[in-house]
């Protein structure tokens, strides 16, 4: 085990690591789709790639320099909000965070071959594991949101009828002493 300024190294190689990581994420899609995700650079013509790119930039920043959990969750969500509703099992949806380990190891390949595994790599990988735990929270929030939306949609379909029947009231309104729904 050797020591090196891994944080400095990863900071310097930021663009290369991010590009490698992004490509690894793209390759979790079928080959034709991966080709498109890599090729199209207009953010509106390729919104998925754009969101992934913005998300992983923030996550990488969090990995190297630390970040408030809410802020990290925001960046994780930019990736997870999409993968949580795509055709992935939960494990597949969250694969992307572990691909960061692969991207970093690939970038360190030469160093490791010549000098062995740097001690700091373990620390960085532990931080990625920490991010993975946050991913579970974000993923669950998104899935819960999905089910909440289904319920809301059904409610919205009947809300007009309920209003017409006087069966809904806004309890925030003052002078609203009686709840008409009790009249049943």
């Amino acid at each position: 085990m050797t020591r090196m300024d891994l944080q400095g190294f990863l900071s310097e190689k930021r663009h290369l690591v991010l590009e490698r990581w992004l490509n690894l994420i793209f390759e979790t899609y079928p080959p034709e789709t991966a080709r498109f995700l890599k090729r199209e650079k207009d953010r509106f013509a390729n919104p998925v790639a754009y969101e992934f790119h913005e998300g992983i930039k923030g996550i990488y920043e969090a990995l190297l320099y630390g970040m408030e959990p809410d802020r990290v969750s925001y960046f994780l969500d930019r990736v997870i909000s999409i993968r949580a509703i795509q055709d992935f099992l939960p494990s597949g949806a969250l694969t992307f965070i572990f691909l960061l380990k692969t991207a970093i190891r690939k970038e360190l390949e030469k160093e490791i071959r010549e000098k062995g595994v740097p001690e700091e790599l373990l620390e960085i990988e532990s931080r990625i594991d920490g991010l993975a735990l946050l991913c579970f929270d974000v993923y669950m929030r998104r899935r819960e949101k999905l089910y909440e939306l289904r319920v809301d949609e059904v409610k919205r379909r009947v809300s007009g009828l309920l209003r017409m029947a006087g069966l809904v009231v806004d309890l925030d309104q003052k002078n609203n002493k009686e709840v008409k729904a009790n009249e049943f």
Partner: peptide, 14 residues
């Protein structure tokens, strides 16, 4: 047309 469909863009299904 290949990349113009929002269902392709959103699902990633070729």
């Amino acid at each position: 047309c290949a990349d113009k469909c929002q269902f392709f863009l959103g699902t990633g299904d070729p």
